[in-house]
Amino acid sequence: MEQRDSEEPGSRSSEDTDDPQNMSNESDSSEPQEVSSREREPHPGVMLESNTRLNITVKKLHVCGEWKWLQGGEDTCGICRMEFESACNICKFPGDDCPLVVGTCRHAFHRHCIEKWIAAPSNQPRAQCPLCRQDWQVAD
């Protein structure tokens, strides 16, 4: 998300519609990084080039990131019912400690969830995928 301040407050809405253009300008000049690295110091702001009569100065900028497991798709873990990107019920935080594990049947689960299921007494001697009941084997 980005916020821009203008010298003409009344014309904000027209700025917003200009967004795509402005964004490409920013990435070309790689100015946003400079702005964020100096965020703590008072910064005069960065003037954007403009073909219109608006003079736009970027004073503040919030950068948001998003991550996703590549294998999971939009689904949730069939065992804990949480989104793949949220922590399983054992973990406090999601991440590399508890990655997705995909079986040969292409079903994916949180690592901790499927490990617990494989170890469950009702699932012996041979573990099955909780979704399709095929023999569980981790895909390469």
Partner: peptide, 9 residues
């Protein structure tokens, strides 16, 4: 019983 699966609710 024996056919329980963790994905059942």
């Amino acid at each position: 019983k024996d056919q329980w699966a963790a994905s059942l609710t």
